[in-house]
Simulated assay, not measured.
Amino acid sequence: MKKILKYGLIGLAGIVALLVLAVAIISATFNPNDYKPLIIKLVQEKKQRTLTIEGDIKLAFWPKIGADLGKVSISEHKSEQTFASIQGAKVSLALLPLLKKELVVDTIYIDGAQANIIKYKDGTTNFDDLLSKDEEESEQIKFDVDGVKVTNSAVNYSDEGTGAKYALSKFNLTSGHIALAEPIDLATDFSATANQPAIAADIKLKGNFLADPEAKHFAAKDLDASIKGDLLGGKDVNITMSGDIDAKPETREFLIDSLKLALSGQFDGAKVTLDLNAPALVAQKDEVTSKKITVNLNQEKANDSFKASLVLSDIKGSPKALQSSG
């Protein structure tokens, strides 16, 4: 038994030594910056865009294989004008899946991303060429992303046809595992401005979200959202919402659990507060059921005040005709 343990430890030490030697050799002989001109040339040839990678690409080998890309920018199609840029980007790969020929991106870190998106009058956008697929994806390598972390980023969108402009700034996002048609843990906060309709607000959003366009299934679990600012035609508006929502529009199935919505703000010189509480609401095709829904509305303007309370218990019926016991 002692000999087996001894030889096992020796074998393990040998493997560790080989790994250390391999990392040392790779570090000494492989320089990713040697491939920068090739990458830039390929982007220019394939997409007619100028890719700029400032500084050196830095590699890390422990505890995860990773790369620090530094500042990166890409131009508009057939133009030197900047389309998008990143102040810093880091990518790390999980080690164990590599042994099974699986490329699993452990975490993506992006800081200071900036993007300008334009929809032209003819309906095309300034990123259509980036969506075209020139080559088929490899069938031998499994690609997966375990998480994304974005900090201090911004996106500007303008529609030349309608004149609408939207902007997100101070954008931060942290996600859990990302895969198609699977729920995603997500937390984000950002400032939003728009002119159609007029919006200037700070937004926070957290929860577990599912977006499956193919199955037409959308859901939000443990939703915790807040919006503060000028919107909906009001000033100093504060909206909070929590609960669970599950929607399948194609089959007309909607489930609401523990939904709470609160709104307050100044509208046309009046102070308005609204509270909605829906512990459970189920809509399946032509059938709607709910145990109890309460709505409270208060409005104060000068010396006038208005209060209304609505309680709907034991709701049943259809979207066109509902019945309630009180």
Rank of each mutant, 00 (worst) to 15 (best):
residue 138 S to T: 11
residue 103 L to G: 02
residue 219 A to S: 11
residue 50 T to D: 08
residue 136 E to W: 12
residue 89 A to G: 05
residue 323 Q to Y: 12
residue 149 K to W: 07
residue 124 T to L: 05
residue 284 Q to A: 11
residue 82 T to V: 09
residue 266 Q to C: 03
residue 16 V to S: 01
residue 204 K to T: 10
residue 19 L to P: 07
residue 113 A to P: 02
residue 199 I to E: 01
residue 135 E to I: 13
residue 247 A to K: 09
residue 108 I to Q: 01
residue 165 K to R: 13
residue 51 L to S: 06
residue 231 L to N: 11
residue 286 D to I: 07
residue 38 L to H: 10
residue 298 N to K: 15
residue 237 V to G: 00
residue 294 T to Q: 06
residue 35 Y to K: 13
residue 113 A to G: 12
residue 24 A to N: 09
residue 234 G to A: 12
residue 79 S to D: 11
residue 76 E to S: 11
residue 129 D to E: 15
residue 168 L to C: 02
residue 157 Y to G: 07
residue 277 N to G: 09
residue 147 G to M: 06
residue 170 K to G: 11
residue 202 D to V: 05
residue 69 L to T: 07
residue 293 I to H: 05
residue 284 Q to F: 05
residue 59 L to E: 06
residue 50 T to A: 06
residue 297 L to F: 11
residue 62 W to M: 14
residue 325 S to A: 12
residue 223 L to E: 01
residue 136 E to L: 15
residue 271 K to P: 03
residue 318 S to L: 05
residue 69 L to N: 05
residue 177 H to A: 15
residue 193 T to P: 01
residue 127 F to T: 03
residue 121 K to R: 14
residue 57 I to W: 01
residue 143 F to A: 05
residue 315 I to E: 02
residue 253 E to I: 13
residue 246 D to L: 07
residue 77 H to P: 01
residue 290 S to E: 03
residue 134 D to S: 12
residue 281 L to Y: 01
residue 49 R to Q: 09
residue 74 I to A: 04
residue 285 K to M: 12
residue 266 Q to G: 04
residue 176 G to L: 01
residue 13 A to K: 08
residue 118 I to E: 03
residue 137 E to W: 11
residue 214 E to A: 15
residue 109 Y to I: 04
residue 171 F to M: 05
residue 196 Q to P: 03
residue 43 V to T: 07
residue 53 I to D: 01
residue 56 D to S: 14
residue 269 G to L: 06
residue 19 L to A: 12
residue 294 T to E: 10
residue 208 N to K: 10
residue 231 L to R: 06
residue 117 I to T: 03
residue 133 K to I: 15
residue 240 T to E: 08
residue 164 A to R: 10
residue 224 D to N: 10
residue 271 K to Y: 12
residue 246 D to G: 09
residue 62 W to V: 11
residue 313 S to F: 04
residue 66 G to M: 02
residue 112 G to Y: 04
residue 20 V to Q: 04
residue 169 S to E: 09
residue 212 D to V: 03
residue 50 T to H: 05
residue 70 G to Q: 02
residue 196 Q to N: 14
residue 29 T to E: 10
residue 326 G to A: 08
residue 223 L to D: 04
residue 53 I to S: 02
residue 82 T to H: 00
residue 36 K to W: 06
residue 210 L to C: 07
residue 311 V to S: 08
residue 186 L to V: 13
residue 85 S to V: 02
residue 25 I to M: 05
residue 240 T to Q: 09
residue 35 Y to M: 14
residue 166 Y to K: 09
residue 277 N to L: 12
residue 12 L to P: 00
residue 314 D to P: 02
residue 196 Q to A: 13
residue 138 S to R: 08
residue 200 A to F: 10
residue 150 V to H: 02
residue 90 K to V: 09
residue 172 N to P: 03
residue 210 L to R: 00
residue 128 D to E: 11
residue 293 I to P: 00
residue 309 S to P: 02
residue 211 A to T: 14
residue 232 L to V: 10
residue 184 I to K: 03
residue 119 K to R: 15
residue 67 A to L: 08
residue 135 E to Y: 14
residue 319 P to S: 09
residue 324 S to A: 15
residue 281 L to Q: 01
residue 307 K to S: 13
residue 135 E to D: 15
residue 120 Y to A: 13
residue 164 A to S: 13
residue 183 P to T: 06
residue 217 H to Y: 14
residue 119 K to V: 10
residue 218 F to V: 13
residue 224 D to T: 07
residue 196 Q to W: 06
residue 180 L to Y: 11
residue 45 E to M: 15
residue 73 S to M: 00
residue 155 V to R: 09
residue 70 G to Y: 03
residue 146 D to V: 09
residue 160 E to C: 06
